[in-house]
Design a binder for these strands. Structure first.
Ligand SMILES: [Mn+2]
Ligand SMILES: [Mn+2]
Ligand SMILES: [Zn+2]
Ligand SMILES: [Zn+2]
Lengths: 164, 164
DNA sequence: GGGCTTGATGCAACATTGTAGCATTAGGCT
DNA sequence: AGCCTAATGCTACAATGTTGCATCAAGCCC
């Protein structure tokens, strides 16, 4: 499956009230009235420290590598719960599988880039999804999902190396 | 399954060179060197006349209603072929299933609105997906998919009727 | 620390969406 | 009308996610 590296470094982030740097995954889970289980804990820590959205499959693989026993269904349910609680966000990359990223600032939204070559999804922190202008009357917009598709920098470099 | 009505009328469209109004589905298929089969023909006609993107399932249902015998797999392949040929476009509505719409103008792109209540996807002809500004170097953007999520006008009205 | 309660897990079975292989059919051409 | 082969129909399979239910263990009270 896909590796867990990100092809470009994420920019520095400003800590916010919702999730100050020193609030541990354990505390954030407990604060929502959820039980701190090994799967939830490991997944939330992974998402908090991750720089790009991860698929269920990638997370499962990482858990396995870390020697954390887990069940497919439990992982689905843990991810659902994290999203419900606002601790994670679900991203549709244009494939059939969802991807998940940790939520630092509940108010902060950003666009994503999906590489159609390698399947990586990277966060475009600087790019806000367009606001809901010129919408037919009666429509209420909850959120905007903007996904750019194309070729990532890593795939571009790989191309150049192959034909110099 | 979902009905085939659209909750708001599509604006008038200007015919273009790629697909002048008088070019029949039959002619467009043949022009690409494809064989004109009943499934391709019916699907392309449906997409050309439709005002919002349809899922495989909705198309299958419409074919069945029209008494056009078809196979699940054949329909998948017909849709793939139409997309390859530039006659249809695939839209990720944020669910697991793709949706398809006819392509009138190959150059024209627009955003979509996905109603999280009823699942309908409607075209926002006036809203262009944001261009690729402020992208990390080395990234090449092919296209932008912008999907607004929220509640459509029909669902809003239904709400008001229930609690007046 | 020991027991209770119930939220969370693990497992099996199922649903949906889409693909692959391959024999058969039928579209278009002569 | 007959031929060639693109397209179909069928079966089997893969990937992703969901549901039901018995069992386990996290957190709480003592
Ligand atoms: Mn992101
Ligand atoms: Mn559209
Ligand atoms: Zn790439
Ligand atoms: Zn709706």
């Amino acid at each position: 499956m896909a590796s867990l590296q990100t092809p470009y470094p994420a920019p520095a982030r400003v800590p916010d009230d919702d999730a100050p740097r020193h609030t541990s995954a354990r505390e954030r889970i407990a604060a929502r009235g959820g039980r701190v289980t090994r799967t939830r804990l490991a997944v939330l820590e992974m998402l908090q420290h991750g720089t790009h959205p991860l698929s269920h499959d990638e997370i499962a693989e990482a858990l396995a590598s870390a020697g954390i026993a887990h069940d497919r269904v439990t992982l689905y349910r843990a991810l659902d719960w994290l999203v419900e609680q606002g601790l994670a966000r679900r991203i549709a990359g244009g494939e059939r599988a969802w991807r998940f990223e940790g939520v630092r600032d509940a108010g902060h939204r950003h666009a994503h880039f999906h590489c159609d070559r390698c399947g990586q999804v990277v966060c475009l922190e600087g790019l806000q999804p367009a606001p809901a202008t010129a919408l037919p009357s009666g429509f209420q917009v909850e959120r905007a999902d903007l996904v750019l598709h194309g070729q990532c920098a890593a795939c571009g470099r790989r191309d150049e190396e192959l034909r110099p």
